[in-house]
Computed example of a mutant assay.
Amino acid sequence: MIPTFKNIHPKFKYNGIHYDFGVLKELAYSLVKEGQVYEKGIGNFLLDWLDDSDSLIVHTSGSTGVPKAIALKKEHIVNSALATGAFYKMGPGTKALQCLSADHIAGKMMLVRAMVLGWEIDMVEPSSHPLQFTTKHYDFVAMVPLQVQGSISHLNQIGTLIIGGAPISPELKSDLNKVDTRIFETYGMTETITHIAVKELAKGPEDYNFKTLPDVVLYIDPRGCLVIEAPKVSDTVIVTNDLVKLISPAEFQWLGRYDNIINSGGVKLIPEQLETKLSVLIESRFFVAGIPDAILGQKLILVVEGNIDREQLHMDIKSLKSISKFEIPKEILVVPQFVETGSGKVDRTKTLSKYKI
């Protein structure tokens, strides 16, 4: 059988039951009409996937700008699923867990992989503890960091775990060092139909680089930002705002976002790099940002969610050997709650605006 969006793999199972094209459509209608909220999202996606259109309308997350609707070719989506199956060697009969919302591309792709590759996929309501009500072993699962953190004691139920949607904190990486599961951090976006590069989490202090999946070529633009050529998943070259250190056309280190760079008194600071250093001191959610300053141009500030001792934290930061004097925040601000995007990521711009920072 040639993999296309019009063919459902004969080994495909949804919650333990095999469905062909026609019966799967009936399931989709049933989920939309009678299912729980998360099941309605699954049903709506299946109806879109099984219609006659050769493209699918999806929405970007909004974590780096205004969310927008884009059209993805179903042929490209199938190619992405095939690349994932080949890279991880996950063929027909693979047991997978779907614990991500089907409203977003990562959740949609889990379903597509199952239908195209012949996986046996189980569905659970998206939550921060997706494994708490099952003892079943799964070959392949995709989660966001919050779900991984809530599943640490159950990760032995997973053979291969991919993590995306947000950076993995140093604390979580340390916890994952003790887990036998094969774990990969992913790099991608809606425009690339989820991940086009991955790095396996090292079992130790070292860190690996991101390496591309097949048929992906990388280079950088004059800003130092990543440019992606992936003809099997995109008709256009994708220019990102991700600052990287390019090791080869198939390997890179991620540094941060170009649009987040803070220019303070002529010193360019990459927030993501600084946040990694500060994470050893701060347990709650936080981020650094630059706000207008008459003398420096931009003043470096630290924004923390919750309740902390600001004076003590400032003293602790000054004592860190890993940061320079330019990386010490000029001001520490505490807010009750961060604003989030629809996919649960921290919206830095709207958080700053909400609290008039």
Rank of each mutant, 00 (worst) to 15 (best):
L213F: 09
L213N: 03
V216Q: 04
V216A: 08
V217S: 14
V217Y: 13
D221H: 04
G224F: 11
G224E: 11
C225Y: 05
L226W: 02
E229T: 05
V233W: 01
S234N: 14
D235L: 07
T240S: 15
N241G: 12
D242Q: 07
L243F: 01
L243E: 02
V244H: 03
V244A: 07
L246F: 01
I247R: 14
S248W: 10
P249A: 02
P249F: 03
A250I: 13
F252Q: 06
Q253G: 04
L255Y: 06
G256N: 04
G256R: 04
N260C: 05
N263Y: 11
G265R: 05
G265L: 03
V267W: 05
L269Y: 11
I270K: 08
I270T: 15
Q273H: 10
Q273M: 15
L274Y: 02
E275K: 02
K277H: 07
L278C: 01
V280Y: 05
V280R: 12
V280I: 09
L281Q: 02
L281T: 04
I282N: 05
I282D: 09
S284T: 10
S284H: 07
F287T: 06
G297N: 04
Q298T: 13
L300W: 04
L300K: 06
I301C: 14
I301H: 13
L302V: 00
L302K: 05
L302A: 02
V304C: 04
G306I: 09
N307Q: 13
N307K: 14
E311T: 02
Q312N: 13
H314I: 06
M315G: 00
D316E: 14
D316I: 02
K318A: 01
S319D: 01
S319L: 12
L320Y: 12
K321N: 11
I323R: 08
I323D: 05
S324K: 13
K325D: 06
K325G: 03
E327A: 10
I328R: 01
P329V: 08
K330P: 01
E331L: 11
I332C: 00
I332W: 10
L333A: 12
L333T: 12
L333H: 15
V335F: 06
F338M: 13
F338A: 07
T341E: 14
G342W: 09
S343I: 11
